[in-house]
Design a protein around this nucleic acid. Structure first.
Lengths: 250, 250
DNA sequence: CGACATGTTGAAGCGGTTCAAGTAGGGTGG
DNA sequence: CCACCCTACTTGAACCGCTTCAACATGTCG
């Protein structure tokens, strides 16, 4: 009780005792392997709302696993505009787009006070050669990100504003559900502006469509708070992504 | 005819004697390592124009390196529509989006008669644990694909039709140049329809903008044949992607 | 409480789509 | 080798979904 010893777990929580380990990098690793992974994770870093995890031009040294809070990643586009390419929730890995250039080409900014595990990439690579499961998991995570971007591209290329927002809301819901929270009632951590930017729309359009959806009884919106009332109707508008496997696999 | 011995190199050209090896998977490997890679590459496969390298729903077993010809990759979207997510030229790797699902979610179709090297992924993974340079290269390739998709997203989200087509033409030019061909005069292997689809535009729009560009003297178009006359002016319209490093790094 | 950022709502304008018609290539069969 | 056909491409004109501009409402934070 009165011991002067600091509990190190307050600073660096072990993967094995982290509630996210089944969603995060150590997924599927055995205990011994997880310990090795633990040993290379440098520290736990807290990023306050609005602060950057990294900025475009920073040297790439590490990947980051979100522990709590959320982030937006965006690329600079001319002048001072930005293009958001994704939001990141707990359990998700950030920074994989920078490996090939040794330098970040994008920004990652906390949407609310957040904490991350920093994973030095050279150590992670080395460990991956020793732990095939880890290597495979990394390939798999990167592959999934490519796939996800394909969905994003498909959205932007042809779908209506309604469809984009429906897909977005359902996607966020699914990700919250994966974390053990409700998939039908949640608080968005990003602004209307951020949503609009991700979806390639004007803020006003997003606002209007939220209103439409509410009028049609598909969901309730009150500022950041969302309640999905008619998931099926939203899904009908949304782009199934990845394409409905129950259909194509049958 | 009279000899029963087949020259195996006609079927399976070694990486070390392939003109593309500096652009392809064996990039940066030493001779011994390249031999190992050679030993796992199953065979050389020819895909005729219009045929599929793989289809959505196929089991994922291999990556493919384009040796000659070109491909388009597209995801099915509702009914019988498609969304093209990329074109693939010689030296480029296809199929990385399927790793995480063990099953292809997209189609890859030859735009002209093409040949590929098939690389069974389980063997490639195993070899990657033994050859760190190969592992790093794979991470790097996948990272680059994510980055490229971010550029594509940025295009689709906000840029005008003119900008999208300018970026597309310059991108194709750059990739031809990398292969040792002219970057300012080339033949497109894809149809206007395919270009429009990739860029999220209507065919008619693409056609009109080609005409505009020609009228403004930026380029000459005659069916599939393109000559870039004013690369600088095109670049001014295009989205710099990845963002101009000479500027942001300064 | 006041000030500023964020979000909503309305109205006009526009870029790109859609629909429609016409042209040009490329391949096939006679 | 030419006539034919079918697909790819081009061009024009009307239309529409979304953006832009503007004003207002609501939260939030010092």
């Amino acid at each position: 009780m009165s011991k002067p010893v600091v509990n190190l777990d307050d600073i660096r929580t072990k993967c094995s005792s982290c509630s996210l380990y089944q969603l995060c990098l150590p997924m599927g690793l055995e205990t011994g392997e997880m310990d090795k992974l633990d040993s290379i994770i440098k520290r736990r870093r807290v990023v306050k709302k609005g602060e950057y995890l990294y900025q475009s031009g920073d040297n790439f040294t590490s990947l980051y696993a979100v522990r709590s809070g959320s982030f937006k990643s965006f690329t600079p586009v001319q002048d001072d505009a930005e293009q958001i390419v994704g939001f990141h929730l707990p359990g998700e890995l950030i920074g994989m787009d920078a490996i090939s250039q040794h330098q970040h080409q994008s920004f990652s900014q906390a949407l609310e006070t957040a904490s991350v595990c920093e994973i030095p990439f050279v150590h992670l690579e080395k460990l991956s050669t020793e732990v095939p499961g880890l290597q495979h998991h990394l390939f798999s995570l990167m592959s999934a990100e490519i796939q996800q971007e394909h969905c994003h591209v498909t959205q932007l290329a042809k779908r209506t504003a309604e469809s984009r927002l429906a897909s977005f809301i359902l996607d966020i819901g699914k990700r919250f559900q994966k974390l053990g929270y409700s998939g039908t009632e949640f608080n968005l951590s990003m602004s209307r502006n951020d949503i609009a930017n991700l979806l390639g729309l004007a803020v006003e359009t997003v606002s209007r469509i939220f209103t439409h959806f509410q009028e049609e009884g598909l969901l309730q919106v009150e500022r950041k708070h969302i309640v999905i009332n008619n998931s099926a109707a939203l899904q009908q508008q949304a782009l199934p992504c990845p394409p409905d496997e129950s259909q194509s696999a049958g």
